[in-house]
Amino acid sequence: MLRLILVRHAKSSWSDPGLPDFDRPLAPRGRRAAAWLGEALHRRHLVPSLILCSPAVRTRETLVLSGMKGEVRFEPELYEDRDRDYLEILGNLDGAASPLALVGHNSAMAVTAARLTGGAAVGEFSTAAFAVIDVPAERWQELRAGQGTLVEYCVPPKE
């Protein structure tokens, strides 16, 4: 059994309209939510052995402020494929690292969760939210749409 933790980056800032999307940092609310995210994962004993993270500024900041521990790999495809899903990226992993955390973007987070679980609704996948999905496979290469079970979906508290 493999366990996947899908983590959407915390709320980013739009205060500098000339800043490229890739370089947008977290907003103050996002910084607080990233800290909540780390506490929520810790309370649930969700410690990833491997973390795949988009290299965008807001995902990197979310990762650092959450305090998630584990081997980190920055994967450009997580930013480039943010409007699709992440199943191909996961299926191309060599190995069985579990739990595996993936820190990325919407709409890919919502689509990935829905495709992997056969439609288990997580809605739009809020900023700083995370979904825990169990997959009955031994290696990530065996990953198939519809085979996952949504264990939990958590969103940060409203401010």
Rank of each mutant, 00 (worst) to 15 (best):
M1G: 12
L2T: 11
L2Q: 12
V7L: 07
H9K: 09
A10M: 06
S12K: 07
W14P: 05
S15E: 15
D16E: 14
L19V: 07
D21V: 08
D21P: 04
F22A: 11
F22E: 08
D23S: 11
A27R: 01
R29Y: 04
R32S: 14
R32T: 10
A33M: 12
A33P: 01
A34Q: 04
A35K: 10
L37R: 02
A40W: 11
L41P: 01
L41Q: 00
R43M: 09
P48E: 03
S49D: 13
S49V: 09
L50W: 03
S54Q: 08
P55E: 13
P55T: 08
T59E: 10
R60F: 00
E61R: 07
E61H: 10
S66L: 02
G67Y: 06
M68E: 00
V72G: 06
R73H: 06
R73V: 13
F74V: 01
F74A: 07
P76N: 11
E77L: 14
Y79F: 15
E80L: 13
E80T: 06
R82F: 08
R82L: 06
R84Q: 09
D85G: 01
Y86H: 00
L90K: 00
G91H: 02
N92T: 04
N92I: 01
L93Q: 00
G95S: 03
A96F: 04
L100R: 02
A101W: 02
G104Q: 14
G104V: 09
H105K: 03
N106Q: 09
M109Y: 00
V111N: 08
A114Q: 10
R115G: 04
R115D: 13
T117C: 13
G119K: 15
A120E: 15
V122L: 15
V122E: 09
G123K: 00
G123W: 11
G123R: 05
E124I: 14
F125T: 01
A128T: 08
A129C: 00
F130P: 04
A131H: 07
D134G: 05
V135C: 15
P136T: 14
A137F: 13
R139P: 00
Q141A: 11
E142T: 12
R144L: 14
R144N: 12
G146D: 11
G148L: 07
L150R: 03
C154R: 15
V155N: 05
K158Q: 10
K158Y: 04
